[in-house]
Design a protein around this nucleic acid. Structure first.
Lengths: 140, 140
DNA sequence: TGACATAATGAAAATGATTCCCGATAAGAC
DNA sequence: GTCTTATCGGGAATCATTTTCATTATGTCA
């Protein structure tokens, strides 16, 4: 019961910066790091601070608008998701360009829950990410 | 073809520090961070530097002796594994104490490969970790 | 066994992502 | 328009991890 509905929105002001961050993410279907988004925005002349980028990315995650993937090197990458609040899904991610495809695996969900239950674990969740090279990147 | 066999050992000297790090990991069946292992070793009077701990943990991973899990907060945790070189497996991890159980899911492996293939991804691998609270931690 | 080449070590400095701080700014309410 | 306060943002602070490099210790070979 420790989890609250991700759709539980908090009163939030509309700001240019917030919109800019969302647009930057929406512009591509790839997982992007905060540093990357920040650099892109600044490069396009946007007036925004690094802290603000981090703040909004975290807000998106809290509101269930974006998914996060923690890369092996420790960097966090974000991507907007269609309707994360209602659809639990995973990703097939290109480890070269970051392009991602949302995938579902009902069987995996039930398997995970069953395994956890067998070992007496409660309050379970899981992470499943598939990495590979997309056709474009594999060509180069 | 970029991957080499994890069992491909490199000439390596036997040192007290290396043994100490391995012992520290072997002492518990939980995923532990480098900082944690370092603190434990120093507390027990071991003469070892932080860099050395990091070095050996990485070596274990390279040699297929240990598995890594990158926690959401960015910290990497390590655990020795029975025979990682021959058995591909995943983990059911207690998010409170780090205790882990090795699990297998052949169905998940095939599913992952199939999904990747359907989208034209090559050179595929995946991460599957199940997090929860073990019975002990759930009680407190 | 003794000398040597060099892998391993570790203290300190460097790195890099992320968070914190706090005075300045601007969104929304009245 | 005025006011309240959420939001900004630049810079300092954290923190895990990596790098540097002079010192130490291991395995080898004579």
């Amino acid at each position: 019961m420790a989890l609250m509905a991700p759709t539980q929105q908090v009163k939030r002001r509309a700001t240019n910066q917030g919109a800019a961050v969302k647009e930057a993410l929406a512009a591509e279907d790839t997982f992007r790091s905060a540093q990357d988004v920040y650099a892109t925005l600044r490069a396009s002349g946007e007036k925004i601070g690094l802290s603000t980028v981090y703040r909004h990315l975290q807000i998106f995650v809290d509101d269930g608008l974006a998914d996060v993937i923690h890369k092996p090197d420790g960097e966090s990458t974000y991507r907007l998701c269609g309707d994360a609040s209602t659809t639990h899904h995973h990703h097939l991610v290109c480890r070269s360009c970051g392009k991602a495809v949302e995938i579902e695996g009902p069987a995996v969900e039930t398997w995970a829950d069953k395994v956890a239950a067998q070992h007496g674990f409660s309050d379970v969740n899981h992470t499943v990410e598939i990495f590979g090279l997309c056709t474009t990147c594999a060509a180069s």
